[in-house]
Design a protein around this nucleic acid. Structure first.
Length: 424
RNA sequence: GGAGAGAUGGCAGAGUGGUCGAAUGCGCACGCUUGGAAAGCGUGUAAGGUGUUAAAGCCUUCGAGGGUUCGAAUCCCUCUCUCUCCGCCA
């Protein structure tokens, strides 16, 4: 959520910033809503203050046994006036709330200007793209040779965009999960958490998936109307919702492996082959909550933590800074890690690392107590995939494939996996 | 699923219609004391909004929402959650 105080102080800066994303902020509407609210609210509060005084007097008068009927009559008039005014005020506040909570975050100054994916800025590349002395197969072809990616069964059990992994590939995924969690907990100092995969509206509002992006989510029917979490970001970051953290636990660094469920509405026709884009996939997620002054540094650090996984898996990748038109609703700045996919001869997203600054924290009232000022301040939240499992699996299959259709296992994974290759 | 009991500040815990945002204890911060510490003593210590150079002041919040009343932590209704017992269960 935007800082309303800042919006009052320098509205032009905010309007311009939002314009970079392609978001038109209706300043006139905002000003008229705000000024209406201000006068209505202060009027109502004044009436309430008056009523509070009179009620107090009535109390004293009753105790003393003197006649208070005149005061009570006066108070009755005030009460009904307050009732009708506060009804009006409540609906106005609701309107303002839905207006402001549909506005995306401000982007950092160094976010590259652009319209879409094409304008993202490549920052660095890592690793050598392999020169195949044969025509590389795509992961689905490799997987069906190995009888390990079974799309038909996914369709039978559930429907399109669900997959079944068999045998060694299922085991490879499990090895990868353990490998990633070990690196992040033992070397990068994250604490592992296990969280619910079903989340409520409040949690989704906190991280910014609601109210604007409900169509991307799976929603349960029934009494509760829970949603399937589209990313561990939702349950994990919401651990800080409505909390005031002690400064000594900052920076808070959490890592979590969960399945992710996405309806992928609007992506029909995209990546329909194989396990590139599924309704259900596994992910290891990094989440940090830090003081405002540390959040720039934290984004760089968190991104390096995600990159480290790719490096150790010997997968060629690049880092791009998402441009103003491609960056997500809640993010102030995002680095995507893109891994090389031989069958497509291009880099594809495998991790997205974002700094949300205080945008999510304001929505979810995630705060910390600053001991030097003794004031509560909003946290800054960040997260990044470290990494998305199905795409890691896919990348290993394609990048490590051998001429005979077998797949070599990256060195660091061999102990976890228990073998150095998946035979044809 | 059935029966019962609860939900109050960082924590524990009082408060059953009126100057209650809330006693008390613990914790925490500062000061006194001390060679230093502990103990002891004293002072302070919720969040949000509004306002101000800053403050004061004012409004809201005692699980959530609604109601009764001049006035609600306290009474009534609905919901959520927690605990105990019984049943079922990985």
């Amino acid at each position: 959520m935007l800082d309303v105080k800042r919006l009052k102080k320098d509205p032009e800066i905010i309007v311009d910033n939002l314009k970079r994303r392609g978001f038109e902020f209706d300043l006139d509407q905002w000003i008229s809503l705000e000024s209406a609210r201000k006068s209505l609210q202060s009027d109502t509060e004044n009436l309430q203050a008056e009523l509070n005084d009179i009620s107090k007097e009535i109390g004293i008068s009753k105790k003393e046994g003197t006649d208070s009927s005149k005061l009570e009559k006066k108070a009755g008039v005030l009460t009904s006036a307050i009732k009708s005014q506060s009804k009006e005020l409540t609906s106005l506040l609701k309107e303002i709330d839905s207006f402001i909570s549909s506005v995306p975050n401000l982007i950092d100054d160094d976010v590259p200007q652009g319209k879409d994916e094409e304008d993202n800025l490549e920052l660095r590349t890592y690793g050598k793209i392999r020169d195949f002395d044969f025509t590389p197969k795509d992961h689905l072809e490799l997987g069906s040779h190995l009888k390990s990616i079974d799309m038909e069964s996914g369709v039978k059990i559930t429907g399109a965009r669900f997959a079944v992994l068999n045998g060694e590939l299922a085991r490879l995924q499990r090895s990868l999960i353990n490998f990633m969690l070990d690196i992040h907990t033992k070397e990068h100092n994250y604490q592992e958490v296990y969280v619910p995969y079903l989340v409520n509206k409040e949690s989704l509002f906190g991280t910014g998936q609601l109210p604007k992006f409900e169509e991307d989510l799976f929603k349960l029917e029934g009494k509760e109307n829970f949603y399937l979490a589209s990313t561990a970001e939702v349950p994990v970051t919401n651990l800080f919702r409505d909390e005031i953290l002690n400064s000594d636990i900052l920076p808070a660094k959490l890592v979590c492996h969960t399945p992710c469920f996405r309806s992928e509405a609007g992506s029909y026709g995209l990546d329909t082959k194989g396990i590139m884009r599924l309704h259900q996939f596994e992910k290891v997620e990094l989440v940090q909550a830090v003081e405002e002054k540390d959040s720039d540094k934290a984004l760089e650090e968190l991104t390096r933590h995600a990159e480290e996984i790719l490096k150790r898996l010997e997968l060629p990748y690049r880092v791009v800074s998402l441009c103003s038109g491609d960056i997500g609703f809640s993010a102030a700045k995002t680095y995507d890690l893109e891994v090389w996919i031989p069958s497509q001869e291009r880099y594809r997203e495998i991790s997205s690392c974002s700094n949300f600054r205080d945008f999510q924290a304001r929505r979810m009232k995630a705060r910390w107590k600053n001991p030097s000022t003794n004031k509560t301040e909003l946290l800054n939240t960040l997260n990044g995939s470290g990494l998305a499992l199905s795409r890691t699996l896919l990348a290993i299959m394609e990048n490590f494939q051998q001429k005979d259709g077998s797949i070599a296992i990256p060195e660091v994974l061999r102990d976890y996996f228990g073998s150095d290759k998946i035979k044809h």
